[in-house]
């Protein structure tokens, strides 16, 4: 299975200054797979994505991205391995227009979507393309944060809480987009609080507690593990 493995995180420890946040994260994501990191607030899911991107303090352990060790690389080198990162706070730049935000991230791989394709997928962005980035609605900003990493040719998408705080109709739209991306062969890591959003999309789910993966649940095990999920996630 080695060849189909796209992301392997092993015994990853990460720190913010003195505080030790990740305590040996272990999980793998296969090429073209969509996995979700589930857990309570503060369990270390967001930190896991930030650690993969090199945005935390000190990191130890191993992060293999498409066969390359990334644990000692600077963030821009990690992105250039073909990783697209959508942060929890969305990270839309207020000093850039919608279109400048969209065009900002440089190409990190071949086969990214064209601007026309993205405007077709996210029609609102086309209408708002001259608006200041942060003057757009929460939903539009989320669409923009997604769209701008699809343009770059990144094949591994790290998506942090993309459904958070959005109206149900927009969450539905995002779910459709994730489905489309899965069909197109993207490898996706979804960090989610919203179990109902993640459950139908993820091929496998990792339950994170205290900076470690405590359980792995495949899509077909969802029914039988219902009680366990209820207990650990409160869903």
């Amino acid at each position: 299975m080695q060849s189909t493995e796209y992301l392997r995180v092993s015994s990853l420890h990460a720190f913010y200054g003195e505080s030790h946040v990740l305590h040996g994260m272990d999980f793998t994501v296969r090429r073209g797979e969509c996995v979700s990191l589930l857990g309570r607030n503060g369990a270390g899911r967001t930190t896991t994505l930030r650690a993969i991107m090199g945005l935390t303090g000190k990191r130890t352990g191993s992060i293999m991205i498409n066969g390359r060790e990334a644990v000692n690389l600077a963030p821009h080198k990690i992105a250039q391995l073909g990783v697209g990162y959508c942060p929890e706070e969305r990270g839309i730049y207020s000093s850039l227009t919608c279109e400048e935000n969209l065009m900002l991230p440089p190409k990190v791989g071949s086969g990214g979507m064209s601007v026309e394709e993205l405007y077709e997928m996210f029609p609102n962005l086309k209408e708002r393309r001259h608006s200041q980035g942060t003057k757009m609605s929460g939903g539009e900003q989320q669409m923009l944060a997604m769209a701008r990493i699809l343009r770059t040719g990144a094949r591994l998408l790290l998506l942090d809480e993309i459904s958070e705080g959005l109206a149900p109709v927009i969450v539905q739209k995002l779910a459709e987009i994730i489905q489309t991306l899965k069909q197109r062969g993207y490898t996706i890591v979804l960090v989610e609080q919203n179990f109902r959003f993640a459950a139908p999309l993820a091929d496998r789910m990792f339950i994170v507690e205290h900076g470690q993966v405590v359980a792995e649940i495949a899509q077909h095990e969802l029914q039988e593990k219902q009680a366990f999920l209820q207990e650990t996630l409160g869903v």
Partner: peptide, 25 residues
């Protein structure tokens, strides 16, 4: 310009800009 957009982005949020693959240092 595009270079200026990099500059403005790096001014506003240097870490995220670097995470997009731009050599901020």
């Amino acid at each position: 310009t595009r270079l200026g957009a990099y500059l403005r982005a790096a001014t506003e949020n240097p870490k995220l800009t670097q995470a997009f693959g731009i050599n901020v240092p």
